[in-house]
Simulated assay, not measured.
Amino acid sequence: MLLIARTKEFNKDQVLHQAMLLFWEKGYEAASIPDLLEVMGISRSSLYDTFSDKQTLYTAALEHYKEGSVYKQAILERASTVRDGIFQFFEHHIASAYDTSLPGGCFVTNAATTESPDEKINELIKTSFLDLELAFCELLEKGQQSGEIDKTTDIKTLSYLLLNLHQSINIMAKTGQDPERAKEMISFVIAGV
């Protein structure tokens, strides 16, 4: 008798996206396995066959989110000027942080402000922050080379400030603060660059 292995009857990216949205909204601890199975539309055996366990699924969801966010950093890389790059980045970021079709804020920021279940997740969060800080720093370095930014400006500290503004916008969006105030803050910072 010939046995044929059953193929998975779901799209891994789609179910991972649904898990990501639930983890983003509820956090790691509050997202139960039954909740995950319901939003993902898969069986318990499919979840464990595909993702091993809840922690692995959470890590995969964070990586999925990070891959989808790379386009924001590309705004900084393609910017023709420092001010335009920073403005466009934050304009896009504020719009996505306040997007009512999403859980609010940023999944990585939410993960960073709750207890992470393991070191791999903590490292993923740290890397995400460092990557964005580096993208800001590279744009500011280009600005110094082109003369747009004074050579004496401490661009490492300015990059860290922009990273922190990014994170604070996420938290303010999560708490329902007015997005116009975030836009005013960014305009104020850009004027001083």
Score class of each variant (00 low, 15 high):
M1S: 14
L3I: 09
I4P: 03
A5I: 14
R6E: 14
T7M: 06
K8A: 11
K8T: 13
K8D: 10
K12R: 14
D13W: 01
D13N: 15
Q14A: 11
L16S: 02
H17Q: 12
Q18V: 00
A19L: 05
L22Q: 04
F23H: 05
F23W: 06
W24F: 14
W24V: 11
E25L: 08
K26L: 08
E29K: 13
A30R: 15
A31Q: 06
P34G: 08
D35I: 13
L37S: 03
L37E: 04
G41Y: 02
I42L: 02
L47H: 03
L47Q: 06
L47F: 06
L47R: 05
T50L: 03
F51W: 09
D53S: 11
Q55R: 10
Q55L: 01
T56Y: 01
L57M: 10
T59A: 10
A60K: 05
A61D: 05
E63F: 00
K66G: 07
K66H: 12
S69F: 07
S69I: 08
S69P: 00
V70R: 13
V70A: 08
K72N: 07
A74S: 06
E77G: 05
A79Q: 04
V82Y: 02
R83E: 10
D84R: 07
D84S: 09
I86L: 13
F87S: 11
F87V: 01
Q88H: 12
F89T: 09
F89S: 04
F90C: 06
H93P: 00
I94W: 04
A95N: 12
A95T: 15
D99F: 02
D99N: 14
L102Y: 06
G104A: 04
G105T: 11
G105Q: 07
C106V: 13
C106F: 05
V108P: 03
V108M: 13
T109C: 08
T109W: 07
A112N: 11
A112K: 09
A112Y: 05
A112R: 09
E115Y: 07
P117L: 01
D118T: 11
N122Q: 08
N122Y: 00
E123P: 00
L124P: 06
K126W: 02
S128C: 09
S128L: 01
L132R: 12
A135F: 12
F136D: 07
E138Q: 14
E138P: 02
K142R: 15
K142H: 09
K142W: 03
G143S: 04
Q144S: 06
S146A: 10
S146G: 02
G147A: 08
G147Q: 07
G147P: 11
E148P: 12
I149N: 05
I149Y: 02
I149T: 09
D150P: 01
K151H: 11
K151V: 15
K151R: 13
T153L: 15
D154S: 10
I155H: 07
K156H: 13
K156A: 09
K156I: 14
T157F: 11
S159L: 04
S159D: 03
S159N: 04
L162K: 04
I169Q: 03
N170Y: 04
N170H: 10
A173W: 08
T175S: 12
A182V: 13
A182K: 06
A182I: 11
K183S: 09
K183L: 08
I186M: 10
S187I: 12
V189Y: 12
V189I: 15
V193R: 01
